[in-house]
Write a protein that binds this DNA or RNA. Structure first.
Lengths: 195, 195, 195, 195
DNA sequence: GATGAATGAGCCTTCATTCAT
DNA sequence: GATGAATGAAGGCTCATTCAT
């Protein structure tokens, strides 16, 4: 299994750094190889082509995202609390890796439609976690019983994503994690949570 | 003023069509020129370079957006109502021009970071309209008095944008405008509006 | 029509020289462009890709071959005479253009199977001229009445081709045209011509 | 002597199969190694480089050719008969090994000039057998006394080679060996044999 | 003002060969 | 002797922009 060999992760981490520092269109394979400390050709022992590096990058990192999210919500018993820790977790993971934040919020969006469709497929698992929490909140009568789950999920993801992108565009000058309660307040209100 | 000459708009409209139908990376200057019915070189009599076409495109179309938005909110007296017509207006303008929807939601996001920063500057005027409505709502006690305007605006724009993008990615198969009340409900709730 | 523009022939002639002097695998597009005195990109205004240069080269030159061959046999009344002038013509055209001889006999054969199949299609017209002469010779009772035209044509083409290739491999050190009568004698004998 | 170790022949046979089935340019060393059931690096214990595999392949197979040819002409007493069994032998050996036929007639010709010069050196022994038979035929007055041996040999080899190549290009659809008498008739006639 | 032929910089990928184990 | 992971050089093609007409 190639994914477990050290160079696999080495190359992905190099790609994050190179893309963050040079931009998507200036992230040549040769630059990634150099950053990873391997020869250009070695990249192709672990990835089918350049696009494959980017998809794998997203899968690896988003995998951690989903895993971590599952962990943090496991200990919470109300949907409201779960949403809070999800937002905090989302903000924290990107705050802790500034390069990754730039890559996911700005650079990877420049990829072509095909790549973005594949990225969306990876995102789906994350969005399904949100859906599950929303449905739980409705059942527990925390949220409005007529809440439109799909639209609420789009609000939640849209709000979180827009918040992170704005923060990255402002060069990460302020404390993103500190915004979590405000964002949480806005979206749970949106979902009809009683105050 | 070049903007008033017929070929200026002709080229921008050609760009929207070409980008929507071929994708950002397949929208070569020569293709746009052909669609516009002019020679390649003529483009450069009206635009500094290719990036300038895209910024101008965004400015032109977003200008109409702001203008229309101002019109529709003019007749409304509550912030809540104003938000509703803004959402409806946003959804309607993109529903009416499928090419434009593809370009703004999918294709233009593939542009490089620089172009997107410029696009964000153009967006600012639109976001300031949202801010004004929010502040008005707070003053009129329609919304929570401690509402964080900046974050609320990010929620509103993020939610709207995510809704439109999802709709475009689903190939515009359902009625976007019909979603306006649901979205409105979610975000005014988020802003603490009493039911 | 691109074929009539001066740069079309200019590039083909450059390709013949570059391939002859550097070998097929060392004939980079950039080298051909330099030899032709145009930019690399200009090549692609006249040819679809590198393979297209080679096929066009063959078509152009073989077209002259067929044309010239038709001319020289037009004035002759016996099949035997026609074969003689065909051989002489074949030898003369390649003797007069040493670069072309190298390209057709050695370098172009290194092209991949696909290209060679296309080249064979171009050759067909030339081979059909041989067939016509052979059938005429049979009818005029110059050749054996039971002559197998297809095999005789393979003998004729194989013999001529082998003679030229050997001459090229020997660095064109001797007079190729002087061999025509000998070759002619061998193949007409082969076809059963009376002495 | 490496040539006697089992892996030597194993690799050569693998090369014939891989080249025939994939084409010269798709016959990577790693593919040959896999087909031979050895590691890539092992190839280099038996061959200097890739070109060396091909030359050795040709030497081995052509060695069998010459050997067999000597055998079949040993029992014949006239030059004419000898030529017939040589042609039959040539056709039979390639008919019996379709892979080898593809490799010698189509794929190996795509090798570069250098390799082909070396291949020609290997061929020389075979051609000298033809020369010997021709000189014998002249002495025995079977052929014209003024026969140009070199040109006659080129006719014979060119005709045989062209016949085989045409047969391979037609995907070996007809019986090649059945053509031997016709080819024999053509070339002995060409050499001035009395009927 | 309008044209469109010409330019040329820039990059992903392959694969023969090596060498530490 | 055998392995196979790692190397790194090399080239065809695209397309935004220019400029002579």
């Amino acid at each position: 299994m190639k994914k477990n060999k050290p160079k696999y992760k080495q190359i992905i981490d190099a790609a994050v750094i190179v893309i963050a520092e040079n931009g998507y269109h200036q992230a040549q394979v040769s630059k990634i190889a150099k950053q990873a400390g391997v020869a250009d050709g070695t990249i192709y022992l672990y990835f089918k082509n350049k696009e494959d590096i980017l998809i794998s990058l997203f899968e690896e990192k988003m995998g951690l995202f989903v895993e971590k999210t599952k962990e943090v919500i496991a200990g919470k018993h109300s949907a409201k609390e779960k949403l809070l820790v999800m937002i905090e977790n989302h903000f924290r993971l990107l705050s802790e890796d500034h390069h990754l934040a730039i890559v996911t919020q700005l650079e990877l969006r420049q990829s072509n439609k095909d790549l973005r469709l594949k990225i969306n497929a990876v995102l789906k698992e994350y969005l399904m976690l949100v859906d599950a929490v929303l449905r739980e909140g409705i059942e527990l009568k925390e949220f409005a019983e007529d809440l439109d789950v799909r639209m609420a999920r789009q609000m939640i993801f849209g709000t979180i994503d827009e918040s992170v992108t704005t923060w990255v565009m402002n060069e990460q000058k302020y404390d993103l994690i500190a915004l979590a309660p405000t964002v949480h307040h806005l979206i749970t209100n949106g979902c009809g949570a009683k105050l």
